[in-house]
Design a protein around this nucleic acid. Structure first.
Lengths: 214, 214
DNA sequence: TTCTGTTTGTGTACGGTGTTCACAACGACA
DNA sequence: TGTCGTTGTGAACACCGTACACAAACAGAA
C-alpha cells in the first residue's frame, strides 16, 4: 500500500515513481470492495494522486487495467490455495495424502471466494480471464496458477493410485466446475450467509461427490 | 418485439402504451448481445422511442431494470430446460426415466448457456439474482424456476428409488454447482469453442459424476 | 556543463452515462 | 367542462472513459 492516509498522497516530485503499481494496487482495492464494476479508472488515478489521463501511459484503457487486476486476483486465489496445501501434515499414507491435497485445493478455493468475494468475482469476470490459465502473472508464490494447482493435485491422485489414469483426462474440468459453481452459490446464491462450519460441511459433501464421481 | 425497423419507432400518441414492457424487451435484447454491462438505460429508452427520464416512471433506477431483465433471462433458462424435458419419451423404466429427467435438466441448462451466453451471464450477474430462486417472474411456462425444475428432477429420482432419501438433502446445491460451473467454463473459460458433440460429451461426463457422487 | 530527445504526468475537452426536477400532455372521472 | 393523477419531455448535473497538445523531469551525448 502506497498511501494509507486520507486524501491525495501529494507527490513532491513531478514523476510518480511507480504509477503502474500504484494504479494496480488501487484497482485491486476497488475490486476487493465492489467487484469488477467498481474498478473505475478515474478513481484509481485519484487514489494514486495523479491526473486521469496519466493512467494511459501504463494501461491501454480501462479494460487493460481490469485485466491486470484480474490477474492479481487470480494470483491471490492461488496463494490462498497454496496456504491450504502448506497447512497439510507431511507423511502418512500416500493415497490419503493425495486425497487430502485435492481437498485442500478445493477448500482453499472456497475459502478465498468467501473471504474475498469482490476479488473472487473480479478474477472470473474479465473477458479472457480463464482462457490463458497458465499466465505467470496469475500464479501464486509457488509459480502455479489456480488451475495448475488443481491439475497437480489430480496428477498426485493418479500417482498415488487413487484415480485410474483413464479417468484423468478432463478431470480438472469436472472438479473445477463443481467447486467453482459452489463458490458462486456461496457468495451470490441461496447459500449465502452460511457460517464457516456449514460451508466446510457442504464443501466436504461436494468434494466427496467429486471424488466418488470422478 | 415492438419495433423491428431501424430508427426510432416514432410514436404518434404522447403516451407510449406499454413502456415498461418495451423497456424490458429492449433491455433483454441488449443483455442478449453483451451481458449485463450492455443493458444501458438510455439505449433502452432510445429503442423504445422515448426520453431517457421516462424510464424512471417504470423503474426506480438502472438496477431495477437490470433486475427485471435478469428475471426474464432466468425465465428463458427455465423454458430451455422445459423444452429438454418435453422432448423426452414417455413411459419405460421409471428409474431410467427419472435419471433421464435429471440429465435433461442439466443438458437444457448447458444448451441455454451456450446458445444465449449474454442472457445466461445476465441471469446470474445481478446482486440478488439467486436469492429469491422461487420468484414467479423467473419461472418458465410450467411455472417453475430453473432451481425448482432441478429440485423436481431430484425428487423424481428419490421417488423412483434411484437416490436414497438420506442423500436428497442439499443435493440440488451439489448438482447445480457442477452444472453451473461447467457452463461458465464453456462460455468464458478454456472449454470455450467446443462444438456441440464435444459439449454433449463432457456434459454427459459431468452428469455421470453427479449421478455417481450424489 | 549544456543541449537534445524520450518518457511520464497535466489540463482541457468531447461524448456518453445515470439521475433529478420542473413542466407539459394526456386520460379518467366528477 | 373542470380537475386531478399519471406519464412522457427537456434541460440540467455529476460522473465516467478517452484523446490530445503541452510541460516537466529524466538520460545521455556533446
Amino acid at each position: 500500500m502506497t498511501s494509507t492516509g486520507i486524501g491525495p498522497p501529494k507527490r513532491d516530485t513531478y514523476r510518480h515513481g511507480d504509477l503502474r503499481r500504484a494504479l494496480l494496487e488501487a484497482g485491486t482495492e476497488l475490486a476487493r470492495g465492489g467487484g469488477s464494476d467498481a474498478v473505475v479508472l478515474r478513481e484509481a488515478t485519484r487514489r494514486a494522486g495523479v491526473a486521469p489521463s496519466a493512467a494511459y501511459r501504463h494501461f491501454a484503457d480501462r479494460r487493460a487495467l481490469l485485466d491486470a487486476v484480474c490477474s492479481a486476483a487470480q494470483a491471490a486465489l492461488a496463494i490462498a490455495m497454496e496456504e491450504e496445501l502448506d497447512g497439510l501434515p507431511n507423511g502418512g499414507d500416500p493415497a490419503e495424502a493425495a486425497r487430502a491435497r485435492l481437498r485442500a485445493v478445493g477448500t482453499g478455493y472456497l475459502r478465498f471466494a468467501q473471504a474475498e468475494p469482490g476479488l473472487f468475482r473480479t478474477a472470473f469476470s474479465a473477458s479472457d480471464n480463464l482462457r490463458s490459465a497458465a499466465s505467470p502473472s496469475r500464479a501464486g508464490e509457488g509459480g502455479l496458477t489456480p488451475f495448475q494447482l488443481l491439475s497437480a493435485a489430480l496428477d498426485g491422485l493418479v500417482e498415488a493410485g487413487v484415480l485410474p489414469p483413464e479417468r484423468r483426462l478432463g478431470a480438472e474440468f469436472l472438479a473445477w466446475s463443481a467447486v467453482h459453481g459452489l463458490a458462486m452459490l456461496l457468495i451470490d446464491g441461496p447459500l449465502r450467509g452460511l457460517d464457516h462450519a456449514q460451508t466446510q460441511d457442504i464443501g466436504r459433501h461436494l468434494i466427496d461427490m467429486v471424488e466418488r464421481g470422478l
